[in-house]
Every structure is written in C-alpha cells, then in structure tokens.
Design a binder for these strands. Structure first.
Lengths: 213, 213, 213, 213
DNA sequence: AATGAATGAGCGTTCATTCAT
DNA sequence: GATGAATGAACGCTCATTCAT
C-alpha cells in the first residue's frame, strides 16, 4: 500500500487475521482516495490499486462503494469521537463542552486532513450516521439548555445546521487555520444562542486552556 | 416537453426565435432533472429526453453539463433575486432586510421547490456565482454593521456559513414549512450576532408584515 | 470566404450565375481544407464554414465528400495540365518532355502547395482519374520509346510507379526544394530506363533552359 | 476467432499465459481487419468482434488503434525481415541482395496478402518504423555503392521512393503476380542506378537461383 | 438558393461486476 | 482468499443528413 498520512485501520488490525488486515487496507485506502477525489468520483479500482490489491478483491469484502463508505465513516466516527471525549472528561459547563468538542474536531481535521472530509461525506450520504450524530450531540446540548446557556430546541435541523457550519469551514479552508477554527466555533455558539461577546470569550478560553501546544 | 411546475425560461422566450425557445426548453428541463436526480447523477440524455429533443441537440447549445448549469443557475439567480428585491424597496433596517431576504428566498423555494436546490448546487460548483453571491449580500450586511446590529467581519467564510444554513434547511425539509423557514432565518440572524430574542422578534415581524398571504 | 493562397475556381466563375459562384466557393474551400486536414479527416462543416456557408448548402451541390473530391481533383487536373502543356509546345525530345512535365508539376506544387496534394489524393481515391492520367502520359512515353530513349512497357503499374515517386517527394518535402524536385525527376527518368548520368544531364538541362527565374 | 489465412501471433503465443494469448488474438484480428478495410476505416469493434471478444477487452491491452498498429507492424516487420534474412546469408553482391530482398518481400506478400499491406500502412503512419526501415536498407545500399553498382545518395527520400514503388505494386496487383514482382524489382534496381539491361538480368538471376519452387 | 436547427446512428471509452484460475 | 482477464451496459460526443423556413 502506498504511504499515507496515518494508517488508522491498518494499525488497529496488526496481529489480527489476514481477512481483517486486508479489510483494513481497503478502509485506509478508501480514506485517502475519497479525500483526494471525492466519493462520487472515486472508482473501485482507485481504491484497490491504492491498496495494491486486485480489483476483484474488493468484492470479497463489500458489495459496493456505499457499503465501504459506511464502514469507513463509522470507523472514523468512533476514532474521532474517542479522541474528543478523552479531553472532555470532567467538564460540566455546557458551552465549554460544545466549544471544545467543535474545536477539537476541527483540530483533528488539521492533523488528519482526510478524515473529517470523508466522515462528513459519510454523514450526508449514509442515513444512520445522521441519527448517531444527533445522539452524540444531544447530551451536551441538554446540559447547556439546563444551565440556561443555550436557547434552542433540539431537533434534526439544528444538528444539520451545526454540521453544515463545520462543513463550510472545512470546504473553504481545508488546512484549518486557527482563524477558521475560531470563526466556526463562534458561529456554532451563536447558533446555540450565545451572544457574540460570550461566544468570543468562550472560544478564547477553550483555546487558552485546552489547545495550547 | 413533459409538464413541469413552472417553465421559467420557456415563458421568457415565447415569441422569440426558435433557437432561443429550444435553449429555454433545455434550461427548464435541466432544472427539473437536476432537482430530482442531482447535478452529478444527471445524464445528458436525461435532460434531452425530458425536453423531448434528440440527444445530439444538447451539443448545439452547450459543450457540457457544467456550461448548462452555469446558464441555469445564473438565470435562476436573476429571477430569484429579482423577486426578492421587489419586496425590499424602501427598507433601511439591516436585520429586517436580511431576515426578509432570507425568508423570501425560502418562500420562493416553497413555491418552486426545484429552483433553490439547483441554484445552490450551482453556487457550490460554479465559482463565479460564489463571488456574485458575496456582492449581493455585502450591501445588506454593511448596513446592519453600520447600524450596530451585526457583529461580524464580512468574509467568504461568513457568506458560506449563511448559504450552508439555508442549504441545511432545504435539504431537511424540501417543502419548506413555516417552522423550517423561521428556524433558518433565526439561525442566520444569530450568526450575524443578534441575540435569540431579537432574532425571534425580527422574524416574527417580518412574517407579520411581509409574508401574510 | 476566408483568404486563401489562390482561389482558382472562384476566379474562373466571376461573372457567372450565383449557383456557379457558390459551387466555386465550395471547391476552393475544399482544396484548402483537404490540403490541411487530409480528405479523410475533413468534415462537411469544415468545408462549409471555411466557405462561410451554412452546412446545409453543401447538399445543394454534392451528395457527399467523394463527389466533391472528384470535382475538385478534375478541376485541378485540368488547370495543372494546362499550365504544364503551355510550356511543352514544340518540344519533341521524349526525355525532355517527361523531365519538364515532371519538373513543372512539382514547381506548381511549390507555388500552390495545396493543389498537388489534393490532386494526388483524388487520383488514388477516384478511379476515373487514374485512366485519365494514363492517357495524359502515354503520348510522351511513346515518343520516348520511339526515339529509343525509354526502355519500358507502358502499363498501369508503370504509371502508378511514376505517380508514387512524385507522391513520395511531396510527402517528404511539401515545400518542394530544388533538391527534391531534381531527385524526383531523375528517379522518374531512371525508371523509364535512362542511365543515372543521362538522367542527371537531362534534368540539368531542363532546369537551365526552362526553369530559370 | 474467425478463421484467417495464418494466425501469426496466435501461433507464437500457444502455451503462454492467457494475457499473451488474448493479445495475440487481437493482433491477428487487427491484421485481417486492417488489411480488408484499411487502418483509418477500421473501428475498434471491428477488431474485437473479429477476435470474438467484448469491445471493452480492447482497452485492457491498448489505449487506441495507433498503439495496436504499432504493435502489429513491429511484429510483422520482425517476422518478415526474419524470413528475408534467412535467405540472404552469404550473399555479397549488392544488386543481388537488393533484388532478392525485394523479391522475397513481394513473395511473402503473395503468400500472406494481408501482411505487407498492413506493414506498409504502419510504416507510413508510425514514425519509428520509418527509421527502422532506413537502418535495414542502408547496409545493402552501402555495399552496392562500394561495389560501384549503385549510383545514389542514401537519404530519406530514396528510401521512401523504394517503399513507394513496392506499395504501388501491391496496390495495383494485390495477388502479386510474377510480372508485378519482376517489374517492381526492376524498377527498384533502375532507381538505384542500374541500366534496364542489368536490372532485367539481375532479376532473372534472382528468380532462377532463389525463387524457383 | 440558402439557411441552420434538429436528428439519431455510430463510435470511443469507462467501469462495476463476474468468474475461472 | 486473492487474482486479474473478460464482460457489456452505459455514457459522452460527433457528424452526415434532413427539412421546415
């Protein structure tokens, strides 16, 4: 397999059976190729040749591209939310949690530029990931509501609005400069009902305390 | 040509030369097909057969799908902004202008469900429409800033965020219920820096004064 | 009509009826386009647009490209043989006649680079031009035989060999340098049975007496 | 695959891998179709259907017709020159070598009428075969010059003239009667500077000694 | 006579998918 | 399990040809 930024699935499968290792190779290749050509434009052979496998091998694992995307996006979702959650332990302030989660997410996108792109394509194409996202956000949103910080009604549109704001940032600035991350975080907080001033301060705090490195 | 909701371009070209009428047929067909299958998935023959023309006829008018999309989206932009601007005459209050423009836009989407979908695909695919959109919004945003209502920096990301919010609404509720329109308008105002309360009131006012029908 | 090196047919038809003038425009355009793209690669619209006529107009004059080629090549043959014959008046020496005719032909090709190319394509594609060529050559060949200069049997293959030698020169050096013309003329004379020395001298003489300018 | 005169490449690949066998099938089919319709007029599907393969299979082996022609012509050149060279061992007399090579070449064309046709199209279309031909002829021409038999300057035009003479014979009499072969051989020798008498005698000798069968 | 819009058969090419090895 | 040759439907695009104006 051609060298990549980070072979997420391959690493997770070292030592496992061959079938699992080949599948992981496909998954990692899919990330690379989806990220560089986009899901639609990607051909099966793009993935298998990137994985240095025969084209026919693909069909030993997946029926079609969609099924692969589902697998990829789910795996990425698990990895990324895991990373974010690690840092959120013990935080109880709703806005801080949301701001941090958003900032962390975009930070991951900076370090692994391919991941978020592919994950978001997955969310917009694979239906079940939509509701998973809702589940994931709901808790933090409810905390913020209870604390009186968020003035919102939790519904599918709201979640989509948040995702769309994130996507807009990613689309315009794939390298995720600090400025883009900040503007996106602030936009999310404003959407949830914080004033511009509070949004700004909240983001500042999160950057100082959690993202200095 | 198969019956459609509203043959925008066909109407504009009645009485003109045959070449212009056929081009309009293609444009109207493109709207229908792009809206129902999406731009990417649309085949040239989908458009020509919807237009009841031979496939080859397409190439008498456009080099490829992109060129057609550009034409369609531009035409739609002119029509839609025209309709919106008609109602904005004399309004000087920044938030009102933005809220009304957004609400009107989404209203058009309710009446002509295909238009906004296609226009937005065009904006995200055709580069020159991106900057046209910026131009269109900038004035109202500047008014709101000067009046002290908006707390923003006008940049490309902001414009994309606004468009993304609109798109999120359209994607989730293509029929554009009042609830969706309201939530989208409020989201835009919050993004621009209004508090939840002001956003809500502003939207209420716009609905009462300008959208009762 | 776009400017060309020399509008042979157009000139011949000035003052005649419109039908004749339009046909001439097509013929001259055909020469230009056949010469630059080759007969096979030429499209009907290449010719009509070069002639600044509508594509449909073509079919008012010809059924297809082949018919047009026949017309073009015949016209060119008449023009070119006319020019050559003008200079041959009074010459009775077989080798001189052949050498001069060949040299003149290639000279015409230098002045009107498009003509010979098109004419030869015509000869090899249109059958009836083949036998016309035989007719044209036979007389001079017979003179040379009778005078004891040529050691040949006049047959179709011989004529084709001569034409092929001419074509080889044209293909390799479209600009028809003096060297190419000389080598080609000598090759023709050798083919007819002259020794290398006599061939060389014959060509020298023709160049001195008839082609000094 | 439909029956053909002689499946040159197929024979060479029996026992080899499937990929090689299929490629050979394509090559042999190409010879048949190119010979009967000409290179230009041949469609990809003409070749694949003659080979009893799916149209798509072609593209597993070649990018386009040109690439295939190059492969075919090269293979034919190797085969044909091999056959000719076998008979030339030990001959040191320049004119004999040239006459025999030419005669043998045309003899091959009689036995395998498709080969020379296709090879010559290849030589005139594929540039690298042009120079290969020059290389091949140069040696014999130099021998003849050194021996004082040929009165020539070796250049590209000369080589093209020789090829053109051969082509003329092939075009006019695809069955390659003895008369055509003789006339063509004599023409080549005359072109190289031999007198008609010597040319005739040389050809007679070659026919008696080497082509009696 | 001239136009040029419309046609649709035909071709090159791609690529998901199958299957014998 | 992995391979990769073979498939053929599907699509983009061209262009000779027709015909109403």
């Amino acid at each position: 397999m051609a060298a990549t930024a980070h072979q997420l699935f391959r690493e997770q499968s070292t030592g496992k059976k061959k079938r699992e290792r080949t599948r992981s190779t496909l998954l990692d290749s899919a990330i690379s190729v989806f990220a560089s050509k986009g899901f639609e434009a990607t051909r099966i052979t793009d993935i298998t040749s990137h994985a240095e496998l025969a084209n026919g091998t693909f069909y030993n694992y997946y029926q079609d591209k969609d099924e692969l995307l589902r697998d990829v996006a789910t795996g990425l979702a698990v990895e990324i939310t895991g990373r974010i959650n690690d840092e959120m332990e013990g935080l109880t302030h709703g806005p801080t949690r949301v701001a941090l989660a958003t900032a962390r997410l975009l930070h991951v996108a900076r370090q692994e530029p391919e991941w978020l792109n592919v994950l978001l394509e997955g969310v917009f194409i694979v239906p079940e990931l939509q509701s998973a996202t809702v589940q994931y956000l709901r808790q933090d949103l409810e905390i913020g509501i209870e604390q009186g910080h968020f003035t919102i009604e939790i519904n599918l549109l709201l979640v989509n609005q948040i995702l769309s704001l994130i996507r807009a940032g990613l689309l315009l600035d794939p390298d995720m400069s600090d400025a883009t991350i900040r503007q996106t975080c602030e936009a999310v907080l404003r959407l949830l009902g914080l004033t511009p001033t509070k949004s700004r301060k909240q983001v500042d705090k999160v950057f100082q305390r959690h993202l200095e490195n």
